[in-house]
Design a protein around this nucleic acid. Structure first.
Length: 231
DNA sequence: CCCTGATTCGC
DNA sequence: GCGAATCAGG
């Protein structure tokens, strides 16, 4: 996958919107979390509440050789990297808006309110009806790329709540189907997987059964999507 | 353990 | 420029 205009736009928007790199990567698809972070940094947008902060203490109390590894292990890599401060022509400072922390995975993405305070082109005059007229040279890609939306009911029915839905599947939860697809309460096991398998330990036992000698066959084991419902 | 972002460095 | 590997904190 390549970084097209759209994908970069999505990345930028979500990054600034407070979405985590993982969420962005998932949304974009075809890229890893690392790729997203790397791209974000390359784009110049960085610095967000990061768990890792520069701990440049004076070595007062902690005798911990903080960052000794990085500093010592790479002497040849002497890259001071002068911080080039970018004098962004920001007419108005960001009003310290409460970051819309939306880490509730995938669940509703509240429509992002327009943030007029930042990046507004210089207003030249006011037109009839009160619309703001821009200067001829001030046009700058005001087209908001269609925000990616998840088609998720805003109000999940209590039936499904707590159950592992299709959207909740990941590589570490058991994907054993419970119920039948199409049914209102169809969901997935959701237990932690037996490492290396797509199912939890219990369901691995169901999915992978030792072959019994002929003649000693047991009644057909219930398989997912298989015979009469099992629950 | 899981998660997070930051950084490095070979490609 | 890209992103996996690695680092490091929560």
């Amino acid at each position: 996958m390549s970084w097209t205009e759209e994908r970069i736009a999505t990345l930028t928007k979500m990054w600034e919107g407070g979405a985590t790199a993982s969420q962005i990567a998932e949304e974009l698809g075809g890229v890893s979390r690392n790729a997203v972070i790397g791209k974000a940094h390359r784009l110049g947008l960085k610095s967000r509440p990061s768990p890792v902060k520069s701990n440049d203490d004076k070595g007062a109390s902690k005798g911990k050789a903080a960052t000794a590894k990085q500093a010592a292990a790479k002497p040849p890599a002497a890259k001071p990297k002068p911080p080039a401060p970018k004098p962004q022509p920001q007419p108005q400072a960001k009003p310290a808006e409460p970051a819309p922390r939306q880490q509730e995975a995938t669940v509703q993405r509240p429509p992002e309110e327009q943030r007029p305070a930042q990046n507004m082109p210089r207003i030249v005059s006011v037109g009839p009806g009160g619309f703001l007229r821009q200067g001829p040279g001030d046009q700058q890609a005001p087209i908001p790329p269609a925000p990616p939306r998840r088609l998720v009911p805003a109000k999940p029915s209590p039936e499904i709540a707590d159950k592992t839905s299709l959207l909740d599947l990941s590589e570490r939860v058991c994907r054993w189907p419970m119920g039948h697809p199409g049914e209102p309460d169809f969901h997935f096991c959701g237990e932690k997987v037996n490492p290396g398998f797509p199912y939890c330990v219990e369901h691995c036992g169901r999915a992978y059964q030792a072959q019994l000698p002929r003649g000693a066959r047991r009644p057909p084991p219930p398989l997912p999507f298989g015979g009469p419902r099992v629950r």
